[in-house]
Amino acid sequence: MIRPDLLLKPTPKGLYCPPGDFYIDPVRGAVDRAVVTHGHADHARAGHAHVLATPETLAIMASRYGEGFAGATQPLEYGETVEINGVTVWLSPAGHVLGSAQVVVEWKGLRMVCTGDYKRRRDPTCRAFEPVPGTHVFISEATFGLPVFRHPDSDREIAKLLASVRASPDRTHLVGVYALGKAQRVIKLLREAGYHETLYIHGALEKLCRLYEEHGIDLGPLETATLDTSERGAQERFRGQIVLGPPASFHDRWGRRFPDPLPCFASGWMGVRQRAKQSGVELPLIISDHADWDELTDTVREVDPEELWITHGREDALVRWAELEGRKARPLRLVGYEEDAFE
C-alpha cells in the first residue's frame, strides 16, 4: 500500500490531496478546488474557484453566502463517484446536519475517509452516519474526544425542556440553538415529543428553517419572534411559550424583552456544569451534533481502519486510546475549526 500522506496530507490551508490537487474543507483563503463536508462556516467558506459537495450543502452555502459563493459548483449525491485528476472521490452520509458527508478518497488501491463532523445519534433532519467498509485510513473528528463526554439521550433532554415549560407556565423559555442543524433538530424533536403548538424563532433562523422544509423536513408551525414595542403588553403573548434563537441573541436587547425569560441552551458543552453556569444558562440541554467519546471509539472499532488520523478536537486522548488498543494513530493538529461554534 502506498504511503497515506501521498494521497492526503495536512497543510496550513487544510487537508490537501496532491494527486487530485484539491482540498477538503480548506480553512485559510480561497483555493482552486474544494471538497466540502457540510455547510457550517468553519468548514464551508466562500470564494473558492470550484466547490464539490452534496446538493444540500451547496444549497446551504448559497443561502448563507449568496448564489455566487464560488466560481463553479458540482453537486454529488451520496454514493455517486467522480474522478478528479485520477483520484476517485465519493460521499457517504455523516449524520451531522442536512447534507453532511464523509469524503471518501481512493487512489492506487488506498481508501481514505475524512469524516468531517459527525454523530451517531438518531436525527430526524438528516441522513444517518454510514460506516465505509474497507477503509485503510480513517480521519476522524474529536470535538468531544475525552472519556468524560458521554451525552444523554436527546429525547430525555427534550422531555426535560417540556417538563420545565409545564412547571413554569408564566415564563418564556429561551432556547439557544445554532442556526444550522441544531435549531431544526430541536424543533423536530419537540414535534416528535408531541409539542405541536407554534414555536417562535429568531429571524436569524428563518432562512435555514425554510431551506430544511424545502428539502422535505416538516417543522410544523413557526413564527418569527418579533416584539412590537409600540404595542402595549405585546411581549405578554410569549409568556409560557418556547422561543428559539442564536445563543448570543438572548443577551442583547431583543432577548431581554421577553417576560420572565428562562435561559436554556442546547449544546454538548452543557454537560460541563461550569460552562452552563458561566453562560447564565438556567436549563442546560445536553444535545450535541457531534459524536461523544463512546460513539467515537465505537465507530473506530466498527470501521477498523489500518490507521487512524484525528483532527479538530481532543486529539491526544483519542490517540492514546488507539495506542492502548494496538492501533496506529496520529494527531493532525489542523487549525481553523472552532470547537464551540457548531456543536
Rank of each mutant, 00 (worst) to 15 (best):
V303C: 04
H312N: 15
G20E: 12
P305D: 09
E306F: 08
L296E: 00
T224S: 12
L334E: 06
V272E: 14
F129Y: 15
E325D: 09
R64L: 13
R327A: 08
V103F: 01
A266V: 09
I286C: 07
A128L: 09
R156C: 12
A159C: 12
R314V: 09
R275D: 01
D32G: 11
G203T: 14
Y118V: 05
E197R: 04
L262K: 11
L189E: 00
A276R: 05
P18W: 03
A167H: 14
G233K: 11
L208S: 08
R232V: 09
P246Q: 06
P221N: 08
P19E: 06
V175F: 00
F22R: 01
L146A: 14
G233T: 11
V51E: 05
G39Y: 03
Q74R: 15
T224Y: 10
K328S: 10
H43F: 05
G176P: 01
A46M: 07
P259T: 02
L324F: 15
C114P: 09
G29H: 13
H151W: 10
T37W: 00
E206M: 11
V319G: 00
L91G: 02
G280F: 04
L161H: 00
L211S: 02
V87D: 07
D340Q: 13
L7G: 01
A59C: 05
F69Y: 05
P12W: 08
M61K: 00
H215G: 06
A193C: 04
T135M: 08
S140Y: 05
R185C: 15
D260E: 13
D294R: 05
S168W: 13
V175W: 00
V303Q: 05
S92R: 06
A53C: 08
P261F: 00
G47N: 06
V104M: 07
S100T: 02
Y78C: 08
L58V: 04
Y337R: 01
V89W: 05
G181D: 07
N85G: 08
A276D: 00
L219Q: 06
R156M: 13
D170P: 05
T311L: 13
G71C: 11
R28W: 12
N85I: 09
G99E: 01
R301H: 10
E343S: 15
D123V: 00
S154G: 11
Y23I: 10
P284W: 04
D252T: 15
S288W: 03
K277P: 09
R166V: 14
W293D: 01
R28E: 14
V82H: 08
I287P: 04
F265Y: 15
G95Y: 01
V36P: 03
T226N: 10
E236M: 14
K108F: 10
V300P: 10
R333V: 08
A193R: 06
R171K: 14
M1N: 11
D5A: 13
D289W: 13
R111A: 02
A53I: 08
Q74T: 15
A179F: 09
V177Y: 03
F238K: 06
V27H: 08
H48Q: 07
V319A: 06
D170R: 14
R210K: 13
L189M: 13
E214H: 10
P284Y: 06
A204I: 10
P93K: 10
L285P: 08
P4I: 07
V103S: 00
H173T: 11
K207G: 09
R127Y: 12
L189Y: 03
